[in-house]
Design a protein around this nucleic acid. Sequence first.
DNA 1: CTTTCAGCCTGACGGC
DNA 2: TGCCGTCAGGCTGAAA
Length: 268
Amino acid sequence: MPELPEVETTLRGLRPWLLGSTITEVQVRQPALRWPVVKNLPDLLIGQVIVCMGRRAKYLLIKLQQGSLLIHLGMSGSLRLLLADEIWRKHDHIEMVLHTGKRLRYHDPRRFGSWSWATGDHYQLAKLGPEPLSKQLNGEYLYKKARGRMVPVKNFIMSSDIVVGVGNIYAAESLFSAGIRPDRSAGRISLKRFCILSEHIKNVLGSAIDQGGTTLRDFVDSSGEPGYFKQQLQVYGRHGKACRVCNAALKLQRLGQRSTVFCSRCQK
DNA sequence: CTTTCAGCCTGACGGC
DNA sequence: TGCCGTCAGGCTGAAA
């Protein structure tokens, strides 16, 4: 499941190969993604040069001379750079061929991902909160936004209008290392604890991105998936097992239809 | 305004 | 062996 660090790693792996290339061919085999892929996508892309690539939240942004593509990997999406034509595997949905002969192929079994086209702004980006690694995310900001909010703090930091890119895994991990119970109401957390939490969000995501960098060497012609970060997960997926800090059994809770693991001794 | 929740989709897995 | 139910997950939009 690609979270922000995986998307950033994908961007860094692809950018050197795509930037400045002209798109010569586009094939859409399965247009039914999260949102239907625009019907004339090949017409819109062919002949255009990729002039800029970036990331916002978990979206990849590919800017062309006219308009831009916004790609989301959803739950199971991946982008693979092929050096030559290759047999289409099951769940390969889109391919973009470049004048260099390189091919960008999109694979997504669950089709929760998306390829959106816009000549101007993408509406998906309109109401997003700050990037977690930016200085706009800090304790004061979270504290201010949390005034009057009764939602569990885990749901709060997973809301994309508050801060982007904090998915289920990293929310649980950040709250564990910050020592905050995931079910505590956002509005009842002190400024000081929000300062600690924002630092832990940055550390957890930042170190995952750093580790992703080590896989970039093998990105081309590899599986296309940056691979799971070797970073040791403290709580995610470990319910029932012993807390790595205090040895107590980790507990499982459902918050907003998401499973949430935490240590009731370490997190208050 | 805030909060909750169904729906989108496939593959993996457990129980029978 | 195979069928069936459940779960996983980000994001949207509608309902409460």
